[in-house]
Design a binder for these strands. Structure first.
Length: 518
RNA sequence: GCUCCCGUCAUCCAGCGGCCCAGGAUACCGGCCUUUCAAGCCGGCAACGCGGGUUCGAAUCCCGUCGGGAGCACCA
């Protein structure tokens, strides 16, 4: 396979979810693995659903994942435009030519009538597809419908008999009986193109030679293959599509482009209930994972594993370059894949541990900013604090978003004391005594390091005949306000000694009962 | 209803006729470690849907059956 052209073509409604991201990724991987071209095309033919915000969100999601496109909106390319809403003249020209050639016909049923008919068909156990009622209308009948004020849709007349065999790269040959393929709509009553038309036309016009998409489109393939053949069939030495392209002044197809694309239908992504993944399954938007602090390369890793595996039966955690090097569409499996969020978190934790400190700090910045703990570019002091905590955080977080709450106390001037922690570790027991003893012990320390602080604590343990927990928890709560923090000596060492001492004294006066007599 | 696709531990993946009384990962359970929370380390549980073939030999090939999913839109 030489320099393939592949595409991802989202419909801009809603967010980029993991299913779409997986499809985009597989196409992108295929392009990168074979030195090909990754085209991004926005399929916004349905004016009622497509939104600008959604499109921007999709682009952001793809960029977050690092799936950069070679041709597409905002980067351009030789075969644009890359938004279908800007190509409607082409679809109209193609549709008209299809009609003129007798491959398509006008159908006058209204959406309501078809709906009702579908309901009846379902109730009676008949296939709900269009039966072809208007396929052979006479000129007079058409005129009569028009007189009623009806505007027709255009339907493609599918073959009367025989079978269509699609040789799917992943599934092998798939055979479908033409009798089971209804005459489908290619142009709506308002003249706009449907997916079948626009998608097929553009794949051809943009030289897409490999189509990797969700399995839910497997049954659409025979129609698109048939449509492709009609578009490419030569008439007067020129294919219908080429004539239409020239008519509307869009770039011509390149000579080297092959006739029809190879198809690769990817297994469905499912939720825990084994149903097609949808918003019902909780957070499936790429943006949401980004917000939670999932690393993009980890999301890519997990997405890659949804249907594909390197095949050695062992390796699962892979870097993006490794995936590119090993990926092969032909090795994609056929059974539905479950997008496992637990596994994602686990891998993410591992990846965070593997990051070097500077890199981790950098990635943490937006999350600390979001939490209101640092300024937009962080102040030098804030950055230093972040870098000092990064190694401690690294060991215990699975997502970046988990970091700020763990060390918020170090960035805030005021400590937010947690009621339960105070009640358990300060307001009872020997907390007052412990703090009173700890203050001078820490104040008198020569070095302010984790080692020396730990030594001081151990000294206190011996003096007071208490375990480390009994000594350190009151101090932790006094300084952090919570019973949970990174390891205490290291944490204290990161803070200014004065801050620590002040907080201990304040907490002792504010929360502890006066030391009991004996 | 019809058509198509799929069927290995709870979950995902490996397995392409002998290397499999089935391997890895996540989850779960237990232990160790321990200054909190995690992490880490060690160990454990646990699957070839079922029935027939083919074969010296089947998770792997064939048929049937059952189960699951997708599609049959003026959505993509």
């Amino acid at each position: 396979m030489s320099a393939p052209r592949v595409r991802f073509c989202p419909a801009p409604s809603g967010w980029l979810h993991v299913g779409g991201a997986r499809t985009a990724l597989y196409n992108w991987l295929h392009a990168r693995a074979h030195d090909g071209t990754f085209v991004l095309r926005i399929e916004d033919t349905d004016a009622e659903r497509a939104t600008e915000a959604s499109m921007l969100g999709m682009l952001d999601g793809l960029r977050f994942l690092g799936l950069h496109w070679d041709e597409g909106p905002d980067v351009g390319g030789a075969h644009g435009p890359y938004r279908q809403s800007e190509r409607s003249a082409l679809y109209a020209a193609v549709a008209r030519r299809l009609l003129e050639a007798g491959h398509a016909y006008e159908a006058f049923e209204t959406a309501e009538e078809l709906d009702a008919e579908r309901g009846r068909a379902r109730a009676e156990g008949r296939p709900p597809g269009y039966g072809g009622a208007h396929r052979h209308l006479t000129e007079a009948q058409r005129a009569a419908y028009r007189e009623e004020g009806r505007t027709p849709v255009l339907r493609l007349a599918t073959p009367e008999g025989g079978t269509s065999v699609v040789d799917d790269l992943i599934r092998g040959p798939v055979e479908v009986d033409w009798a089971d393929v209804p005459d489908f709509v290619i142009a709506r009553a308002d003249g706009s193109a449907t997916y079948y038309l626009a998608n097929t036309v553009d794949d051809l016009a943009q030289g897409i030679d490999l189509v990797a998409r969700g399995e839910d489109l497997l049954s659409a393939t025979p129609r698109q293959r048939y449509l492709s053949e009609l578009l490419l069939a030569e008439d007067d030495g020129r294919a219908l599509l080429d004539a239409a392209l020239a008519e509307v002044g869009l770039p011509a197809r390149e000579p080297g482009w092959g006739p029809v694309a190879t198809y690769a239908h990817l297994p469905m992504l499912v939720g825990e209930d084994r149903k097609k993944l949808s918003k019902r399954h909780g957070s499936v938007a790429v943006e949401e994972f980004a917000r939670q602090g999932i690393l993009p390369e980890v999301l890519v890793n997990l997405l890659a594993l949804c249907g594909w595996s390197p095949g050695d039966g062992k390796t699962e955690q892979l870097s993006v370059p490794e995936i590119v090097a090993r990926f092969d569409l032909a090795r994609v499996g056929r059974n539905p894949a479950y997008f496992d969020v637990d596994k994602l978190r686990s891998f993410n934790g591992d990846a965070i541990k593997a990051l070097d400190v500077a890199e981790l700090s950098e990635r943490l910045v937006p999350f600390f900013f979001e939490a209101g703990l640092v300024a937009d570019p962080p102040q030098p002091g804030e950055r230093a604090l972040l870098e000092a905590f990064a190694p401690l955080l690294q060991e215990r977080i699975q997502t970046l978003a988990e970091a700020p709450p763990l060390v918020a106390f170090a960035f805030a001037d005021e400590v937010a004391y947690e009621e339960k922690a105070v009640a358990k570790h300060l307001a009872k027991g020997r907390a007052a005594e412990v703090l009173a003893a700890a203050e001078p012990a820490l104040a008198d320390l020569g070095d302010w390091t984790a080692e020396s602080i730990l030594e001081a604590f151990d000294g206190l343990c011996a003096d007071l005949e208490l375990g480390r927990g009994k000594v350190m928890q009151p101090v932790r709560v006094a300084v952090a306000g919570t019973a949970v923090s990174p390891p205490l000596p290291e944490t204290l060492a990161v803070l200014e000694r004065e801050t620590v001492l002040t907080r201990m004294r304040d907490a002792r006066e504010r929360f502890t009962a006066p030391a009991a007599g004996s």
